[in-house]
Computed example of a mutant assay.
Amino acid sequence: MTTIHLVRHGEVDNPEGILYGRIPGFGLTDRGHEMARRVGEHFANAETTPAALVASPLLRAQQTMAPLAENLGEPVFTDDRVIEAANSFEGQKVSARKLTEPKNLIRLYNPLIPSWGEPYRQIVLRMQAAMASLRTKLAAHGPDAEAVVVSHQLPIWMARLAAEGRPLVHDPRKRECALASVTSFTFEQSTLVSVSYENLCADLQPGHAVAGA
C-alpha cells in the first residue's frame, strides 16, 4: 500500500487580483505561510513519516513545502508535471464583463476542452504520470510508504475527478480543494483503492474567491 497526498499551496500574495497562473514570483501571504506551517506540522506529526517530498516549481508551492522539509530534514524534489494548468487569460484580471469582450469570446468556444487553457485530459495524464513515478520510488521504502506533493487547485481536482470516474468538465466554483487542503490517493500496487480529502486550514480560508489560484 502506498499513499500520495496532493496538497494545494497556501494563500498567495496577489493584491491586484490577477490570474497569475504560471507567472513566476507569486509567493505566500503571511496567512499563506501560516497555512504552510500547519501543513508541515500535520505531516511531521503523522503516524507515518513521508518518504518523499515533491513540489511544483512555482514559488508558492515551494514555500508551502518548506516548513515540512525543514521539520523532516528531507530534500524537496521539483516536478514540472504537477505545475499549475496553463491558461490563456494568465496575467489578466478576469471578470464576467471582460470575458464577454469580442477578443476574449473566441477563446470560450469549447468549455469541454477547455478552449481557453490546457486540456483537462492533458492535466490528468501528467498528474497520473507524476503519481506513477512516485509509487515506483515509494516501493523502495517498504509497505505503507507515503509521499507529499504540493501542487495547485485545478491539477489536484482533475486528478481526483479522474480517479473517481467523474466527468472532467465541471463548475470551478464547486471544486473541493481549499487552500492548503490535502487530497489523498491510496494504492495497492498500481490499483487505486481510496481517495480522501481533508481541509487542514478551514479557519484560515479567505472569505472571498481567490483569483489566480
Score class of each variant (00 low, 15 high):
79 D>I: 00
79 D>G: 01
84 E>Q: 06
192 L>K: 03
142 G>D: 08
92 Q>K: 13
189 Q>N: 03
123 I>D: 02
139 A>S: 14
110 N>V: 04
125 L>D: 00
156 I>R: 03
118 E>C: 05
76 V>W: 00
184 S>M: 06
39 V>D: 00
136 T>A: 13
160 R>L: 00
19 L>P: 04
163 A>M: 02
205 Q>K: 12
208 H>M: 08
91 G>P: 12
28 L>P: 03
203 D>Q: 14
152 H>E: 08
16 E>G: 10
7 V>Q: 02
13 D>C: 12
207 G>W: 07
31 R>Y: 11
50 P>H: 06
18 I>K: 14
96 A>N: 13
34 E>L: 13
146 E>F: 04
98 K>Q: 13
22 R>V: 07
153 Q>T: 06
74 E>W: 14
212 G>M: 06
1 M>P: 08
4 I>K: 06
124 V>A: 00
60 R>F: 04
84 E>Y: 07
65 M>W: 07
105 L>G: 06
177 C>E: 08
203 D>C: 12
77 F>Y: 10
182 V>K: 01
6 L>K: 02
141 H>R: 09
58 L>D: 07
187 F>G: 01
109 Y>K: 15
107 R>T: 09
25 G>W: 05
201 C>E: 13
20 Y>H: 11
128 Q>H: 02
191 T>R: 10
207 G>E: 13
79 D>F: 04
168 L>Q: 07
138 L>V: 09
23 I>F: 05
201 C>M: 13
208 H>P: 01
